[in-house]
Design a binder for these strands. Structure first.
Lengths: 184, 184
DNA sequence: GGGCACATGTAAGCTGTTACATGATTAA
DNA sequence: TTAATCATGTAACAGCTTACATGTGCCC
C-alpha cells in the first residue's frame, strides 16, 4: 500500500460518514476508531491537503472564520472502496510486554507481578470502556448504517481483552505462585 | 524510554543468553522472539556499535575473517535489568483489519468474506507455528533458564489467536449470514 | 566455478510523533 | 479577563525499512 495510504483510508472513512473539519476528523478518529486506530494532527492536515489536491475531497468554508469543512467527493468514495479492498498491512510485531516476560528471569518477582497487574488493570478498563461505548452506540447518528460493523470491532476488542485476562491468570500461576507445598 | 532503547533491550536480551555475531543476533530475534518482536539489520548494527561505545557489550573476534562476536558485560546486564523494569511502551494501535471492518458497509460481501477468511487462516497457521515451537522448545540450550518464560509468551500468542478464531466465527454469523429464513 | 549462507555496514527515504506557532470563539 | 476549546499548520526529529555495496567460506 502506497505512501500515507493507511492514513488516507481512515480520513476518507470518517469523511464518508459526515462532512468534518480537520479538527473534527481527529476527534472522530479518536472517539470512534480510537480503540483500534490512531492519527495525529501532523498526519491529518497534510493528508487532507493531499486528498484535496487529488480531487478525492473538496474543501468548503466552515462554521467559523478560518475553519474549513471537508467533504468527500464521488471519486473519493471510489478510492475509499478500493483502499478498503486491499489486504491490511500487518505491522511488524513489537510487544514490549512479552519482551519483558521472555527475559523475565532477569526481573525480580515483584517487577514481574507489577507487570502482570498492569496488564490486568488495563484489560479491565478496556472492557469497561467497550461496554460504555456499546451502551452509547445507538445514539450515534451513524448507527443505522455502521452499527453492526462498529459492534464487530468492539467485539474484537472484548475478546482480545478477555484473552489477556485469562493469560494474566495463567501466567501468574505459572511464574509467580510460590512453592508453598512442602516436599514429600 | 530513550532513543533505540527498545532495540537495545532486545539485543541485550539475546546477548544475555549467549555470545553472538550481529548476524546471529538477528537470527535469534527472528527465530526465538519472532512471534512478538522484530528487528532489521539496519537497526541491529548501529545499536551494537552504540552498546560497545557505552561499554554494555564487548566486541571480540568471531570464527571467521571480519566477523565480530559480541559479549554482554556486567554493566550491560545491569542495564538490561533496568530496561526490563521500565513499563513497556504501548505502540499506538493501528489495526488495518478492524479499520476495514468498521467501514465494511463500503465493502461488498465477497471482500468482507475474503478478509475474514484471511484472518482465520492466519490465526490457524499461527497456532500451528506455536505448537511446533512448543515441541522444539526443550531442545534449545536456553530452555532450563528461559523455558517457563518462553512458554508464557507462546501461551499469549495462542490465546490471542484463539480469540481471533472465535471473533471470525462470530463476525461471519453477524455480518455475512444470509437472511435465508423466510419472513412470517 | 557457481550458488548459498554467513557477515557487516551505509544511505535514502518513509512514516509518524512532538513541539512549536498562531489565532478565533466561547463559557466561567 | 482568562482559561478552555476550536482550529490550522509547520519543522524538527525519532524510528524503522529497504536497497545497496561488499566480501568470505563452504558445498556441490
Amino acid at each position: 500500500m502506497a505512501r500515507q495510504a493507511q492514513t488516507a483510508t481512515a480520513v476518507l472513512g470518517v469523511l464518508s460518514i459526515e462532512d468534518l473539519t480537520g479538527y473534527e476528523v481527529r476527534q472522530a478518529i479518536t472517539s470512534v476508531l480510537g480503540h483500534f486506530w490512531h492519527e495525529s494532527f501532523g498526519q491529518i492536515y497534510p493528508t487532507l491537503a493531499e486528498l484535496v489536491r487529488d480531487g478525492l475531497v473538496s474543501a468548503g468554508p466552515g462554521d467559523r472564520a478560518r475553519s474549513t469543512r471537508y467533504r468527500i467527493t464521488a471519486s473519493g468514495r471510489a478510492r475509499l472502496r478500493k483502499l478498503l479492498a486491499e489486504p491490511p498491512e500487518s505491522q511488524a510485531p513489537r510487544n514490549g510486554l512479552l519482551l519483558r516476560i521472555f527475559f523475565g528471569r532477569s526481573l525480580d518477582d515483584e517487577a514481574l507481578a507489577d507487570l502482570l497487574d498492569d496488564v490486568e488493570s488495563q484489560a479491565g478498563s478496556k472492557l469497561a470502556t467497550y461496554s460504555e461505548i456499546r451502551d452509547g452506540i445507538g445514539d450515534d447518528p451513524s448507527f443505522p448504517v455502521h452499527g453492526r460493523y462498529w459492534e464487530a470491532t468492539l467485539r474484537a476488542g472484548e475478546l482480545a481483552a478477555e484473552a489477556q485476562l485469562r493469560w494474566v491468570a495463567e501466567t501468574r500461576a505459572a511464574l509467580l505462585t510460590p512453592a508453598t507445598l512442602p516436599p514429600l
